[in-house]
Design a binder for these strands. Structure first.
Lengths: 147, 147
DNA sequence: CTATATGCAAATAGTTTGCCTGTTA
DNA sequence: TAACAGGCAAACTATTTGCATATAG
């Protein structure tokens, strides 16, 4: 029931609903990001995309990523002096950056905390997005979240 | 009462308390960051430092910044595909990144929220630092926080 | 005196830009 | 067919590295 054609239709719809042209490049970039619950860099996405679309260019990958982030179809993760990473998870969540392994884990944020976070802003500040990142060590044996 | 000599002694002490050698370069880098409540980039810090120490190199500024961040004497702010910024404010606080102006404002975080934030982590995750950044628009007439 | 930090210049890596061609609505 | 998106290569910018010299404890 989830043929390539349907998949294409779904991706195409998602893009149209954001008022952006559903180009094959945008669809495939979105597809590879949604296809894995990790936090790839633009280069990693480029590599994955090339296997199904060998002609795509890195500049186009960057363009698509920018568009998809703008649309809110994917999220961007900013780390310390490291390449930007991209995140398929659209749920309200934070990131835990493991300093030892470099891995990123998603951490679920309860709704009441989100509300509390927004309350912290003084009047006149209107937050369009909230970025919460923890940095530290994760117990090596546990396998919470995604990297 | 706050002569240059005392200032030097204070900065020197701060560095020693972190087990790093209090070199003149580290002191002056720390001094210029503490001297203004904004969020300069490495380049901006380099420019400010050069006025009192024209011989310093950019590479040394980066080294000093890394050291100072490691020590916890300053903080680092990671933005989306933009140069890293540095922050003199050591209080528990978040950042509000104004998308229109690019300015960064400090936002105070109440203690109970910090506690709540740490509670959100699953067992086995030990956070050494928490980074909270809001992105959006600030009312132009208001002048909360620092940029 | 020895470990460590600095300065300089060159290298690297991530990202952006310009320009021309191709594609979408 | 008009506006917009893609491909390519070159440019740019932030940051890092290697190595010789200087400095702190």
């Amino acid at each position: 029931m989830s043929s390539a054609k349907q998949n294409h239709a779904i991706l195409s719809e998602r893009l149209k609903s954001c008022d952006v042209r559903p180009t094959p490049q945008r669809e495939v970039v979105l597809k590879v990001i949604l296809g894995k619950r990790d936090h790839p860099t633009a280069d990693e996405i480029f590599a994955r995309v090339k296997s199904s679309m060998p002609t795509i260019s890195l500049a186009t990958v960057y363009n698509c990523l920018d568009t998809l982030v703008q649309c809110g179809l994917i999220r961007q993760v900013n780390l310390e002096r490291a390449p930007t990473r991209y995140c398929p998870n659209l749920d309200q969540h934070a990131h835990f950056h493991d300093e030892a392994t470099g891995e990123i884990h998603d951490v679920h944020l309860p709704e009441d905390l989100m509300i509390r976070l927004k309350e912290v802003l003084p009047a006149g500040f209107d937050a369009r997005s909230i970025d919460l990142t923890f940095r530290g060590k994760a117990a090596p044996t546990l396998t919470h979240g995604t990297n």
